[in-house]
Structure formats: structure tokens, C-alpha cells
Computed example of a mutant assay.
Amino acid sequence: MVRKRGTYQIKILDKQLICVFCQNDEFQHREVYMDLSPLGETVTEQLTLQSFSCTSCGDIRMFEEKNRFDHTLQKHVSIIEYMEVIKE
């Protein structure tokens, strides 16, 4: 799942993501792909991290996007919610 570049307000497990340094709540998004391999062995797995960079101070937070089961919807949903911020 690749998201477009833009500015987002982010919720992780239904809690608003706030920058711990400047209290800003707007972040730039990008995906980071890391190949996991035991020491000296071939690549065994790829990890996808969601990287959020604060638009005010540049602090970076990274989360692995996992799914959880929502009993009200009866399906798996992402733990991360994205709401795009439109600048006028």
C-alpha cells in the first residue's frame, strides 16, 4: 500500500500522533522498505515501515503497519489512519 506524497494527520490505534518535540500534528509520509537477513545469510523477509516526518521540526517517527481485527466491521483494518491535510 503506497500512499501519495502529502501532509497528513495520523492516528495510531485511534490516538492522534503528536510530535514530542514541538507538539505539531502534521506529518509528511513515506514508506521505508528494509530487507531482513540474519548475519551473513540471504534476505529472508522484507519489513515495510511507515515513516512520518514532522512538518515543523523534522523529527521522524516510524511504525510497522499492522492490521487488527475490528469486531464491529467484522474485518481486519490497519492500526494507522491517515487524514490528508489540504493547504489552501
Rank of each mutant, 00 (worst) to 15 (best):
V2I: 09
R3G: 08
K4C: 06
K4S: 13
K4I: 09
R5Y: 11
R5W: 07
R5E: 13
R5C: 07
Q9F: 02
K11A: 05
K11Q: 10
K11M: 07
I12M: 02
I12N: 01
D14Q: 09
Q16M: 13
Q16I: 12
Q16T: 14
Q16N: 09
Q16P: 06
L17F: 06
L17W: 06
I18N: 02
I18P: 01
I18W: 04
V20N: 12
V20S: 15
C22L: 07
D25Y: 08
D25Q: 12
D25R: 10
F27T: 01
F27Q: 03
F27A: 04
Q28L: 14
R30Y: 06
E31Y: 14
E31H: 14
V32R: 13
S37I: 01
S37F: 15
P38H: 08
P38A: 14
P38N: 10
G40P: 03
E41V: 04
T42H: 09
T42R: 11
T42C: 07
T42N: 12
V43K: 14
V43S: 11
T44E: 13
T44Y: 10
Q46R: 15
Q46E: 14
L47Q: 05
L47R: 05
L47P: 00
L47N: 03
T48S: 13
T48R: 15
T48W: 04
L49T: 02
S51Y: 02
S51F: 02
F52H: 02
S53I: 10
S56Q: 09
S56M: 08
C57Y: 13
C57Q: 09
G58K: 03
G58H: 02
G58A: 05
G58D: 01
I60M: 07
I60L: 12
M62W: 00
F63P: 00
E64P: 07
E65L: 08
K66E: 04
N67A: 11
R68K: 12
F69L: 05
D70R: 01
D70Q: 02
H71G: 00
H71Q: 01
T72W: 08
H76F: 15
H76D: 11
H76N: 14
V77M: 02
V77W: 01
S78L: 00
